[in-house]
């Protein structure tokens, strides 16, 4: 910047507009006071800082319960934790030992329920998103999906009891419990799959239609490959929900205790009842006297860790699949 010979600087920062470029001559004194904070601006800035602080605090507060829960559980569970706890069966009237039957039972329940719910949910979502026109029939379907998602799990439990245990004569069994869980997770799978499908740009579909691709060809060659990461994530996130629910399986197929061999992965048949982690947690906490204190906590830690592990897998899978696609 060259020297500006005229105009003695009269105050702080006046050098900036001292050149008076384009400023009406004789109003330089007024120019100094341009664009400075007024009292009202200062007040707005105070509010701005305050609002930001409050929102940040609320967001940060989310960390507290997570850390508190995980920390407390791990601390209390510490004496029992270890691989042995997962692999061993409950001993001494469930007051000692491990949780293997419950762990395997949860694997069975979650695996089977997703094996049923995922294909049905994904295919239904494809229909709703890609084929359905806006008519009364499809509106009824959508309404059903939304309402199904809002049904409390204890009501699902009663439905499962009536429909699968009695009406379909599956009895109290892994099959009944899994189907109940499947019905409970279906609407959420449908919703998340639809979201993933809707995220595929319409221009891709247009490109396909305009070379004469059928809807199915469009879906198979373009829509599904580009939405699979979202679909899988949505499905996998339902694992945690299915693993954590107690009510639906309590009514339909989970038992307090079942004797199976230690470390046996194929311990259950589908028409048998099984133990489950969520149910086991409830049992050892409230129903069994003189349980070693760390046992319920360790059960909770195993449940939590398995769910977090599955969720982490989902995130990893999503990242991996997303990196392979580029729009």
């Amino acid at each position: 910047m060259t020297d500006v010979p005229f105009q003695e600087p009269t105050g702080e920062g006046s050098g900036r507009d001292a050149g008076g470029l384009g400023a009406p001559s004789g109003s330089d004194a007024g120019a100094e006071r341009r664009f400075v904070r007024t009292a009202f601006v200062r007040r707005k800035e105070r509010f701005e800082a305050w609002a930001r602080g409050v929102f940040l605090a609320m967001a940060a507060a989310m960390i507290v319960p997570l850390v508190a829960i995980v920390g407390h559980l791990t601390y209390e569970a510490w004496p029992s934790l270890g691989l042995e706890f997962v692999l061993d069966i409950p001993r001494q009237g469930m007051t000692e030992g491990g949780i293997w039957p419950a762990f395997v039972g949860t694997l069975y329940l979650v695996g089977l329920s997703l094996a049923v719910a995922a294909p049905i949910g994904v295919l239904a979502a494809v229909y709703l998103n890609e084929y359905a026109r806006d008519n009364w029939f499809n509106r009824v379907i959508q309404l059903a999906v939304i309402n199904l998602a809002g049904v409390p799990s204890i009501v699902h439990a009663l439905f499962g009891l009536g429909a699968f245990v009695y009406a379909a004569r599956f009895g109290y069994s892994i099959l009944s419990a899994s189907l109940t869980l499947a019905i409970m997770t279906l609407p959420v799978i449908i919703a998340s799959t639809r979201e993933a499908l809707a995220a595929v740009p319409r221009s891709f579909r247009e490109a396909c239609w305009n070379v004469g691709a059928t809807r199915w060809q469009t879906i198979r060659s373009i829509v599904l490959p580009n939405s699979i990461s979202g679909i899988l994530t949505g499905v996998i996130l339902q694992v945690s929900r299915a693993a954590g629910e107690t009510a639906p399986i309590m009514f339909t197929g989970a038992v307090f205790y079942k004797a199976i061999a230690r470390g046996d992965l194929f311990a259950y048949r589908l028409d048998e009842q099984c133990m489950a982690l969520s149910m086991h947690l409830y049992t050892v906490t409230t129903q069994v006297p003189n349980v070693r204190e760390s046992v319920p906590y360790a059960t909770a830690v195993v449940l939590l860790a398995s769910v977090l592990l599955v969720n982490a897998t989902a995130i990893g899978l999503r990242l991996w699949l997303r990196n392979r696609k580029r729009w």
Partner: peptide
Amino acid sequence: RKAVGMVFQRPNPLPISVYENVVFGLRI
């Protein structure tokens, strides 16, 4: 639509290779 094709405002190549884009119609 095989006989009457369309080109759009925003180029909309499919998110696959150049080769596969060109043969997409044949494959379909």
